[in-house]
Computed example of a mutant assay.
Amino acid sequence: MTAERSFKNGSTPTVVLVHGAFADGSSWSGVIAELQDSGIPVTAVANPLRGLATDAAYLTGVVAAIDGPVLLVGHSYGGAVITWAGTRPGNVVGLVYVTAFALEAGESLLDVTGHFPGSLLGPALRPAVLRAADGEETVELFLKDERFPAVFAADLPGPFTSVAAAAQRPIAATAFEDSSPDASWKILPSWYVVATADQAIHPAAQRFMARRAGADTIEVDASHAIALSRPAAVADHIRTAATTTTTGAVKHTHPA
Rank of each mutant, 00 (worst) to 15 (best):
Leu17Ile: 09
Ala154Lys: 07
Ser26His: 12
Thr83Arg: 03
Ala175Ser: 15
Pro159Trp: 15
Ala33Cys: 11
Glu177Arg: 11
Leu143Arg: 14
Leu95Asn: 07
Trp191Met: 07
Ala100Ile: 05
Ser26Met: 08
Asp182Tyr: 04
Glu107Met: 09
Gln206Phe: 02
Val98Arg: 04
Gly118Ala: 02
Ser11Asp: 15
Ala195Leu: 12
Tyr77His: 08
Leu109Met: 10
Leu120Ala: 06
Leu130Val: 07
Arg88Ala: 10
Thr246His: 04
Thr161Leu: 00
Arg126Ala: 14
Ala21Gly: 10
Ile238Ser: 05
Leu49Asn: 00
Phe160Ile: 08
Ser26Gln: 09
Ala150Glu: 15
Thr174Pro: 05
Glu34Lys: 14
Ser190Ile: 10
Val31Cys: 13
Leu17Cys: 12
Tyr77Pro: 01
Val194Asn: 04
Ala80Phe: 05
Ile40Tyr: 03
Val93Asp: 00
Phe208Cys: 01
Ala23Val: 02
Gly78Ala: 12
Thr245Cys: 03
Ile218Gln: 11
Leu141Trp: 10
Val139Glu: 13
Val70His: 04
Gly248Phe: 12
Ala227Met: 08
Phe148Lys: 10
Val45Gln: 01
Glu219Phe: 04
His75Tyr: 09
Trp28Ser: 07
Thr2Glu: 15
Ala46Gln: 08
Ser27Phe: 02
Thr161Glu: 02
Gly30Lys: 13
Ser229Asp: 10
Gly106Phe: 11
Ser184His: 09
Gly51Ala: 07
Val163Asn: 03
Asn47Gln: 11
Ala200Phe: 07
Val129His: 07
Val70Pro: 01
Leu71Trp: 00
Thr87Ala: 13
Thr243Leu: 07
Gly30Glu: 06
Ala256Tyr: 01
Ala205Gln: 00
Ser223Pro: 09
Trp191Cys: 05
Ala46Pro: 00
Gly114Tyr: 07
Gln199Arg: 15
Pro127Val: 06
Val42Tyr: 02
Ala164Met: 01
Ala153Cys: 10
Ala175His: 09
Ser108Gln: 03
Ala23Glu: 00
Ala56Trp: 03
His202Pro: 11
Asp24Val: 01
Ile218Gly: 14
Pro41Gln: 11
Thr14Met: 05
Thr113Trp: 11
Ser38Ile: 10
Val98Lys: 00
Val16Tyr: 04
Thr247Tyr: 03
Thr54Ser: 12
Gln168Asn: 13
Pro255Phe: 06
His237Leu: 09
Arg147Gln: 14
Pro255Gly: 14
Pro159Met: 06
Ala132Leu: 08
Gly135Ala: 02
Ala233Gln: 15
Arg147Asn: 06
Asn47Pro: 02
Gly94Trp: 14
Gly30Arg: 05
Ile238Leu: 13
Thr196Leu: 02
Gly114Leu: 12
Asp134Ala: 06
Ala128Trp: 02
Leu121Glu: 02
Gly30Leu: 12
Thr246Arg: 14
Glu136Leu: 14
Asp111Val: 06
Gly122Asp: 03
Ser38Asn: 15
Ser26Asp: 09
Ser119Tyr: 12
Ala235Cys: 07
Ala153Gly: 06
His19Thr: 07
Ala128Met: 11
Phe208Ala: 09
Gly158Ser: 14
Gly20Trp: 11
Leu110Glu: 10
Phe22Met: 07
Ser223Asn: 12
Ser76Pro: 01
Thr253Tyr: 10
Val92Phe: 01
Ala249Asn: 13
Ser26Arg: 13
Gly78Glu: 10
Ala215Tyr: 08
Ala205Phe: 06
Ala53Asp: 06
Asp221Asn: 10
Ser190Ala: 15
Asn91Thr: 03
Asp198Gly: 03
Arg131Thr: 13
Ala154Leu: 09
Ala235Ile: 05
Val93Gly: 01
